[in-house]
Design a protein around this nucleic acid. Structure first.
Lengths: 215, 215
DNA sequence: TAGATTGTTAATCGATTAACAATC
DNA sequence: TAGATTGTTAATCGATTAACAATC
C-alpha cells in the first residue's frame, strides 16, 4: 500500500497510538476487532477509526471488522518501522543516556549508529552498547557512515547551530529535545520536537483552568 | 483577566511557544511588536496571532502593536507560571534525574516537593537538591504535604497503577513519560503525555513520506 | 492629520461525526 | 438468508485565514 502520502497530519499523529493498541491486542491473542470495539477501548468514535483506517486503503471486511495482525503490519509499514533509518545522537548527558536506556530504537524505525558529546569526561565512555565519540569527529563520521537522522539532546544554545551543521552533513530528520526551535535551510525536513518545558506549561495551564490550587 | 476558561485547545497549545518568543524579545530589549512582525518570526499568520491574543482579552493598541512586557506577563498568568503548584516525581532513574537537572520547575508553574523511587539503591541518595524518598512513604507524604501534581517517570507497567493510587491520594494533574496511556476515574483530570516512542515513530513516518532512505 | 495596526466579522478550509447503502 | 460491520458520502463542527472598519 502506497497511500501513506495522503495521510493528513491529524491521522498521522494518531497512528502511533493505534499501533500500540493493536500491538496489545495482538499480544492478548485477539484476532479481529470492530471499529466500535476499538473505539470504546481507545476513547474514540467508531466513525473516526473507520475514516482513519481508510486513508491507507480499507483493510476491513464488512460484517467482520479488522484483522488485528494485518492492520498491525499495515500501520507498521506506514510508520516505517521495518525500514530502519540510521541515526546519531548528539549530547550524551543524562537525557541522552536516559533515552538510550529507555527506547528500543529498532522498534520505532531507527538504528542508532553513533553517539556524540563534547565533554572530555564522557568521550570514550561506554553507555549501553555505545561508546561516546568526540563531537570533533562528527564530520568525518557523517561522511563515512551517512546517517540520515539526528537526535538532539543538547542544551538549547548548542542545538540550533548543531542542527544547521548536521543539515549540511546530510541529516534529513531531527528529533529535538532542546527547548529552542530549530530553523533549517530546507523547511521540508521533518523536525519532531519534544519540548519538555512547553508540555509542563500546558499542564500548568490546564490545571489552572480546573481551578486546582494548593491547600 | 479571567478569560482563560474560554481558550480553545488549539490556542492553548500555542501559548508556551508565544511565551518563549516573547521572553526572547524581552531579553533583547524589544518593547513593542506587531502581529505581522511576530508572525514573520514565528512562522505564523498575523491573523492567527491577533485572533489568539484576543481570546484572552485584546492587549494590543491600534497603530502600535503589542507591548511585549505586558503581553508576556499576561501569558504567564494564563499559563499559571506565577501560581506554582506542588508536585512530586515518581521514578528517579535516569529519566527522572535528567528532568530534575534540566528543567527549572518554578519557571514552568510547579514546585517539586518530593521525589520517590522503589529502588533501594536510589532511596536516600541526593539528586540535585532532592533526597530520594521510599515510595512506601508515598501515602503518608501525600496526606501530610498534599501535592497536587505528579510527574511519572517510571516504567510502563508501574505507571497505570501508580496513577490510580495517586488520584485517590488527591493528585489532580499528571505529567506522564511512560509509554502507556493513563486512565483515571475522573476523566477531567488533566494528563499531559510525553510519549517518546510515539514521537519517534511520527518522525519515522514523516521521513518515510519524504522518501528518505539510507544509502 | 495620515499611517499603521488592531479587533472583529465573514469566508475558507480541514477534521470530526452522523448516516446509510453496500456487502461479507 | 439475516445480522453485523464496513466504506463512503453528507452534515457538522472547529480552526484558520482574509478582509476591513475602527481607532490609536
Amino acid at each position: 500500500m502506497k497511500a501513506s502520502r495522503t495521510v493528513p497530519q491529524a491521522v498521522l499523529h494518531r497512528l502511533p497510538r493505534y499501533y500500540r493498541y493493536l500491538g496489545d491486542l495482538l499480544e492478548d491473542g485477539v484476532e479481529r476487532i470492530s471499529s466500535s470495539e476499538l473505539g470504546k477501548r481507545m476513547n474514540a468514535t467508531a466513525s473516526q477509526i473507520r475514516q482513519d483506517f481508510n486513508y491507507f486503503g480499507g483493510f476491513g471486511h464488512q460484517g467482520y471488522g479488522y484483522n488485528v495482525a494485518k492492520l498491525y503490519r499495515e500501520i507498521a509499514d506506514i510508520l516505517g518501522i521495518s525500514n530502519p533509518k540510521t541515526a546519531i545522537i548528539l549530547g550524551m548527558g543524562r537525557l541522552g543516556t536516559a533515552i538510550v536506556n529507555r527506547i528500543t530504537f529498532t522498534k520505532r524505525g531507527f538504528e542508532v549508529i553513533g553517539v556524540f558529546d563534547n565533554d572530555p569526561a564522557l568521550i570514550g565512555k561506554k553507555i549501553g552498547t555505545f561508546t561516546v565519540l568526540d563531537v570533533a569527529k562528527l564530520e568525518d563520521f557523517c561522511k563515512e557512515h551517512k546517517p540520515v537522522a539526528a537526535f538532539l539532546t543538547l542544551p538549547r544554545e548548542a542545538a540550533a547551530d548543531t542542527a544547521l551543521k548536521l543539515e549540511a552533513l546530510g541529516i534529513r530528520g531531527f528529533w529535538n529535545f532542546s527547548s529552542g526551535y530549530i530553523r533549517l535551510n530546507d523547511p521540508t525536513i521533518p523536525v519532531e520536537n519534544m519540548h519538555l518545558g512547553d508540555s509542563l506549561m500546558t499542564l500548568s495551564c490546564r490545571m489552572q483552568e480546573h481551578d486546582i490550587k494548593n491547600d
